[in-house]
Design a protein around this nucleic acid. Sequence first.
DNA 1: AATCGGATGGAACACTATATCATCGGGCGA
DNA 2: TCGCCCGATGATATAGTGTTCCATCCGATT
Lengths: 155, 155
Amino acid sequence: MLEAAAREKALHEAEQACARRGAQLTPLRRQVLGLVLEAESPVGAYALLDRLKAARPGAAPPTVYRALDFLLEHGLIHKVERLNAYIGCSDAGHGHAHDHGHPHQFLICRRCGATAEIIDHAVAHAIAAAAERAGFVVSEATVEIEGLCARCAAA
Amino acid sequence: MLEAAAREKALHEAEQACARRGAQLTPLRRQVLGLVLEAESPVGAYALLDRLKAARPGAAPPTVYRALDFLLEHGLIHKVERLNAYIGCSDAGHGHAHDHGHPHQFLICRRCGATAEIIDHAVAHAIAAAAERAGFVVSEATVEIEGLCARCAAA
DNA sequence: AATCGGATGGAACACTATATCATCGGGCGA
DNA sequence: TCGCCCGATGATATAGTGTTCCATCCGATT
Ligand SMILES: [Zn+2]
Ligand SMILES: [Zn+2]
Ligand SMILES: [Zn+2]
Ligand SMILES: [Zn+2]
């Protein structure tokens, strides 16, 4: 997802964001975040586990799931439900001070697997309005749009 | 989800819709659809399997997954990704003649589990516009809104 | 020192979904 | 009628995803 330099920057910003929030981005959590950020596409928990084992042979499923839970909780990553996979937040640390991420949407390419996070306020507003009309109090909305990315659609 | 009378009606309409499409709603598939429709909330594949075993002791995971695939394919049910569960389409057979369902959104109550399908064109249009702007060709969009339903929010 | 709480180690297990091969049975042409 | 094809089902095994539970460690507090 990110090149080495951008990744280091993102990790540093994550540290600062956690510090501001009184959360500890421990070495393990930071390492898992690094693995998520260096993946090309959303990455599954067991793929992360395999990579994590290179550095920590004793790692087991709870190791990675606990780290993922922390990163989700603090808005540093998102889960892509349709893929059962995780991806770095493209907007991590940029303000929104609440507990679990922020409104966002994903564009998932069926062909190449590229997944882009977008933040479209019109979509968010339409969802809020539709829920409101039903007397529903929104806490979080999953929006995952599947199809062909610009590159693959052109080919 | 539906009372016995409404369920029978829905099953009958499903048969007609399948006949029109040249698909066979076999006894097994019809039975699984019936189990989905009689569930109170979205129901998992293995819960369906347990119930199916009452009538078909030999049923196994592929039995139910194959039936679910057929029902999804023909737009008779939807999958709720956040719950890994399945729910009857509230609009089955009402026109849309394409292969895999239709644009829709779910309102999922965190407290009571009630899940309602809505069809909000403003949401669909906002999603189409956002994708268009990114040069993305939409094939299907998952919209799952989590929060508190009107009943639970009032309490 | 005693205690407490968050973080990690580690084994086992639960839940969700698919792969693969065998079998059955209706439709259809030789 | 016989043989063949093909979609549906039976049955076993396996893959993939996520959780529970208990133990341990370590720094902070009292
Ligand atoms: Zn984000
Ligand atoms: Zn693509
Ligand atoms: Zn529907
Ligand atoms: Zn509710």
